[in-house]
């Protein structure tokens, strides 16, 4: 069984108020390392056997159709061992 991971992020030009709020909370807790924070979504999809290129293409299609909104978001598809 393999795991296909789809990461979805807001496009850089789209304001991410949640990331800004996290970024503001970190220094209050003494964590001063962050210049900025962006928050995204991660989908973990289990499939039987090794994913084929066709299967990955199908996942990318699903990501474009449903998991991400290409108007405001970008996504990446990868296989996690």
């Amino acid at each position: 069984m393999a795991k296909i991971v789809v990461d979805v992020m807001l496009k850089p030009e789209i304001l991410d108020p949640q990331g800004v709020a996290v970024s503001a909370a970190l220094p209050r807790l003494g964590f001063t390392f962050a210049k900025s924070v962006r928050q995204g979504k991660r989908f973990e999809i289990e499939v039987d056997g090794e994913p084929t290129p066709a299967q990955l293409a199908e996942v990318a299609k699903a990501a474009e159709t449903l998991l991400a909104n290409p108007v405001i978001e970008t996504f990446t598809v990868r296989v996690e061992k």
Partner: peptide
């Protein structure tokens, strides 16, 4: 319709 609705800027 074009565009998208996102989180209010002050949350």
């Amino acid at each position: 319709l074009p565009g998208a609705l996102t989180r209010n800027h002050e949350l």
